[in-house]
């Protein structure tokens, strides 16, 4: 049931190039937090909100940008960059935010655990 699509918010609620956190349900039915990013390019990404380096739920408050061709979010705590597409930390690919499927249906953003 938790791997079904979960509606989160209207697309308009997401400010371009800024993140937003959402409370959702994880794949095992547990509470989970997701960080949504709507880029100015139009791409939409959903990754875990928890910073794996510090354990704090802050990723949605990081700045977005690019490293070469890679779209990234930068943790606001200690500035590690993560690939928004894979969730992996650029300097330590073993560490990942985790990613969620994301889509827009009738102007509503929906996420689904992978």
């Amino acid at each position: 049931m938790s791997t079904t699509w979960q509606p989160v918010c209207p697309l308009d609620a997401l400010v371009p190039d800024r993140g937003a956190a959402a409370l959702v349900t994880g794949p095992g039915g547990e509470p989970a937090q997701v960080a949504l990013f709507r880029l100015s390019s139009g791409d939409l990404h959903a990754v875990g909100h928890r910073d794996p380096f510090s354990g704090a739920n802050v990723i949605a408050r990081g700045l977005v940008g690019s490293a070469g061709e890679v779209p990234v979010v930068i943790s606001p705590l200690h500035k590690q960059a993560f690939d928004l597409r894979s969730g992996a930390a650029l300097d330590d690919p073993e560490v990942s935010l985790g990613t969620w499927d994301v889509r827009v249906v009738d102007g509503q953003v929906e996420v689904r655990a992978r």
Binding site: V15, D17, R18, A56, R61, L63, P76
Partner: peptide, 20 residues
């Protein structure tokens, strides 16, 4: 648009601590 330029501290006008 410039709201997307600010680090979280400047964005929410407070200082981020280790627990978020």
């Amino acid at each position: 648009e410039n709201a997307a330029l600010q680090d979280t501290n400047d964005h929410v006008m407070a200082n981020l601590q280790k627990d978020g």
